[in-house]
Design a protein around this nucleic acid. Sequence first.
DNA 1: ACTACTGTACCGTCTGGACGGTACATATTC
DNA 2: GAATATGTACCGTCCAGACGGTACAGTAGT
Lengths: 173, 173
Amino acid sequence: MTAERSTRDRLLDSFETLLVSDGSRAATLEAVAAHAGASKGGLLYHFHTKDELIGAMLDRLRDHAAADVERMRVAPEGPAAYYLNTSVDSGSDFDRALIATARIAQENVDAASETLDAVRADWLAVLFEHLNDRPLAQAIQLMGDGLYFNDTTGNQDPQALTSAHEILKRLGL
Amino acid sequence: MTAERSTRDRLLDSFETLLVSDGSRAATLEAVAAHAGASKGGLLYHFHTKDELIGAMLDRLRDHAAADVERMRVAPEGPAAYYLNTSVDSGSDFDRALIATARIAQENVDAASETLDAVRADWLAVLFEHLNDRPLAQAIQLMGDGLYFNDTTGNQDPQALTSAHEILKRLGL
DNA sequence: ACTACTGTACCGTCTGGACGGTACATATTC
DNA sequence: GAATATGTACCGTCCAGACGGTACAGTAGT
């Protein structure tokens, strides 16, 4: 009857947090365990290797993504606006998982790149399905990616999101 | 009368290459030296610490950026189209320096984040100066960022650039 | 008794950095 | 013009600490 997060989940949370806020270099097994208030032995009980920890992170992203695509499909403001809005909400669990995975992908981890590609393809499919206009769908995805990019490099201009919406309006959305 | 690249330059080139293709984790001093065909001692002769190596990388980016802003200002196709085109040309020296710096910035290196912000501000200024339309300027920059983001995570859809240009056309450019 | 851990000790490897040495080109002094 | 410095551009080796991973003994709750 408790909503407490399991140690396993907390370890994944910590891995995510360290990746997002300090980069892959800081996300060592010891640092992850310490951040989660667990021992290194405890971490290795749940994840036998670092690859297994990464794999669990990718599973988590896929779960979030499947749910997000559903929300996007039925969003009252439409998929395009929903997509842009959530692209800048880097506080959400989903976004954290996404950014964390992007950082892993940078170290030439194929599984991470592939997961990322799959998620992006799903998004684009929903945008295209709704708009029936490929250039527009891709441009929206590009702007969403841009909002991410800014967010993840510490550059946060609150006007950027407003500008993206304004452009959508001019394009007849 | 020779155009040979100095060891110092080659070391910086290698640092850049390792950052771009394998991430910050792979860009160790030893790996950089080995990639440049130099010894670790030789590297440390030119750059006394890793921070100094990073500093030199930021200097290089600033130099490239200043030149790029000038080219953008006088580009015959206009700053907007020039910006989008160069955003996807990740083979250029400038882009390599930019991506390398973005990776450094992810490890909470303030100097790198600040340099990146400054470069982005310069670009936006030229776009705004030319278009006199803030939302449009920002949207273009977002699409450019998106093209980068895709490029750097291994996802390279050649249609994306075409779509971005198509949207510019629809917006009256 | 089983699950879910903690804690400690350890291994082999990698890391940033310090350091001493080498080769050679260019002054400086006599 | 020979001898002696000085500076530049490196190489190779060493070190303390951190890394991913292993092993295992112990503990607390169910």
